[in-house]
Amino acid sequence: MDSKLKDLLEKKRSELVSKWIDAIISTYPNDPSGMLKNKKDRFENPIGHTITNVTQNLFQALLDEKSFTDCKQLLDDIIRVRAVQDFAPSKAVSFIFMLKNVVREELGKEIRQNQIYEEIFKFESQLDDLALFAFDIYSGCREQLNQLKTDELKRMTFTLLKKANLMSEIPAQEFEHKELKFNL
């Protein structure tokens, strides 16, 4: 990353991250209590904690130009939450694009003054790619939800199927000949 842009992002880090957090929280239903933003206990406000933790660390990862694989756990932490929260797929991963708006609004003047449009384009393309990567994670979460339903049904009915002789496990001793080699 160009050092000018990096300096700017680092200088304004706390404002940028704070606005990014606000933007993400604004996707949740309007809540006068402000729990998501204000409650600091990580166990009593796990969504708020996840959002804060992920935005701070993801911001740093972007500054450090870490690979997407390094960001995977962070993205997973937040997307796993949003994948079960009534959001349309586009909205569930929209939080990444929100950083673009935040940066444009906060750094607009500096970007113009320093003429660092190219760096900004690069930075934004990086975010676009990250969003695509995030969508893979989102799809994985959704697929897993379906798998959980299947697994749960299996757990519930396993004994029944066994009892009705509709299913049987192969006893371990049948593998006693496992050392034998067959020419097939």
Binding site: Y28, E44, I47, Q85
Partner: peptide
């Protein structure tokens, strides 16, 4: 008084007032 407001796991997990 709001003492109960943020104690429900469904509220904590959804943010839905």
């Amino acid at each position: 008084c709001g003492a109960c407001a943020d104690k429900c796991h469904f509220y904590i997990g959804t943010g839905d007032p």
